[in-house]
Computed example of a mutant assay.
Amino acid sequence: MRLPVLVGVDGSEHAAAAAGLAAREAALRGVPLRLLHASPQLPGAVVPGPALHRLRDIGAQLLQRTAADLAGRHPDLRVESVQSDDAPAGALVAAAGDAGLLVTGMRGRGGFEGLAVGSVALRAAAAAPCPVVLVPSRPGTFAEHGTGQVVLGFDAHRPVGEVADFAFSAADARAAPLHVVQAWAFPAESVSSRSLVVTEEDRADWEDQEVLRLSDVLRPWQEKYPGVTVGSDLMLLHPAEALLNASGGADLLVVGRRAEPRAADGRLGPIAHAVLHHARCPVAVVPHGG
């Protein structure tokens, strides 16, 4: 059985954008869409019974309205609804255990004006066992049409199959071009020290070697997905800066996250963390064991 697409809903603009993208993704994959509403975080260890019942009623109504709206837009889509009394972050991570993809808004109802990424989204991206797509409130044409460019952050010296496969698959499903970005900066001492200077000839030789390496490493995925048009760039920039520059006109940015079995709350690397806080398009964070 193919696993469903899971999305958290809380009535916010960000969650509505995430639900719309999740519905299109589920329809594209031919799998059910699972809506999850979790109890909002309240002060105190114990919530009075009547208040809890009212919160559940409000959540049930939100789920019903959202499901009806999405089913109206996607008549063939099977929509399921789930409620949880757990806090949103824990509920999403737990429910992602039997999902093929988790979609969440960059922010929900909490936080403060100007906050780029909320704590729930960060926890989901860092700890969910499946790939997570984080969606800004205005996710661009990726959500609407599915014909925009997909950008993949990649390192030919440490290729990660799960991340590359996700990006190629996403581009293939949408007949979208894939832009592969490999970034690397020369050590500071190599350009500032009098005893070690990188010449233009050195740089050109390095770039030629890296282009060949990148082409060789990507070949298995290009053979697996022959319909995907692939372009690649080597950038002498910090990886996060290179990815953000490349994703300026993109509709999906794909990065990896090393899965840490011993870290219960997971862990986001510095590149993924920076990208999430500054990206203007949906970002897919794909866990991997490499």
Rank of each mutant, 00 (worst) to 15 (best):
L6D: 03
V7W: 06
V7N: 01
G8W: 07
D10P: 00
G11H: 09
A15F: 00
A16P: 10
A17W: 03
A18L: 02
L21N: 13
E25D: 11
P32W: 07
P32S: 10
R34H: 01
S39W: 03
S39T: 09
A45W: 14
V47G: 02
P50R: 14
L52V: 01
R54G: 04
L55A: 05
I58C: 04
I58S: 01
Q61A: 14
L63P: 06
A68M: 09
L70I: 07
A71Q: 15
D76W: 04
L77G: 12
V79G: 01
S81C: 13
A91V: 02
L92N: 00
T104S: 07
T104C: 11
G108E: 00
G110T: 10
G110W: 06
F112T: 15
E113H: 11
G114V: 12
G114M: 08
L122R: 11
A124V: 02
A127I: 00
C130E: 05
C130S: 11
V135C: 10
P136D: 02
G146F: 09
V150M: 06
F154G: 00
D155Y: 09
A156I: 08
G161Y: 04
E162Y: 06
F166E: 10
F168G: 00
A170I: 14
A173S: 13
A175E: 09
L178S: 05
H179I: 06
V180K: 07
V181C: 04
A185F: 00
A188P: 01
A188Y: 12
S190C: 13
S195P: 01
V198N: 03
T199Q: 08
E200S: 14
D202N: 13
R203G: 10
A204E: 13
W206Q: 11
D208L: 15
S215L: 11
Q222P: 09
G227A: 11
A250E: 11
L253N: 05
V254W: 09
V254K: 06
R258D: 00
L268A: 06
H273Y: 13
H277A: 09
H278A: 15
A279I: 04
P282M: 03
H288P: 03
G290C: 09
